[in-house]
């Protein structure tokens, strides 16, 4: 199934020569392991723009390679992780973030499931509490009179 998900729009496929390199190539790596680890973490959250839901860290595409190199350059130049990410976002927009930023347009996305869970919990709680109450239906006027009569006869 997922094969069919891999190719993006047809024109992008035509445009990009068949990518044969593997993700994160040895030549890209930074000499400092700690810095490289940061670069990996930053690129794992950036979308490979010409792929389907792959991060640039995993992608074989040319553009992913370019962005990986950019991220590493920025980190080497002393950027924080957030600054390096921002450098990519300024070029490609929020679309490049695999984790969408929390803002009014994404509130439904971020808080929808939790809201639904809260709603479900409250709903089932009310349902469970209310149900025993349904049990015996209140007596009708006629039944009440009959009961009163019976009680009177007894007493």
């Amino acid at each position: 199934m997922r094969v069919l998900g891999r190719p993006v729009a047809a024109f992008l496929l035509i445009v990009w020569s068949v990518a044969t390199a593997l993700a994160v190539e040895p030549a890209e790596r930074l000499p400092d392991p700690a810095m490289e680890a940061r670069a990996r973490a930053v690129s794992a959250e950036l979308r490979c723009l010409v792929c389907q839901n792959e991060s640039i860290d995993e992608s074989h595409a040319d553009l992913a390679h370019d962005i990986r190199v950019l991220v590493r350059e920025r980190l080497s130049a002393g950027d924080t992780d957030a600054q390096a990410t921002a450098a990519v976002v300024s070029r490609y927009g929020d679309f490049v973030l695999l984790r969408p930023p929390v803002k009014p347009a994404t509130w439904v996305l971020w808080f929808g499931p939790v809201g639904l869970l809260a709603l479900g919990l409250i709903g089932s709680f009310l349902w469970l509490r209310r149900r025993p109450g349904i049990g015996p239906t209140p007596l009708t006027v006629a039944e009440q009179q009959q009961l009163d009569r019976l009680l009177r006869e007894d007493g």
Partner: peptide
């Protein structure tokens, strides 16, 4: 090297 392209936010050519 495609650096200017990257700065422009190019996805691919054209």
């Amino acid at each position: 090297l495609g650096r200017t392209g990257l700065d422009f936010g190019v996805y691919g050519v054209p």
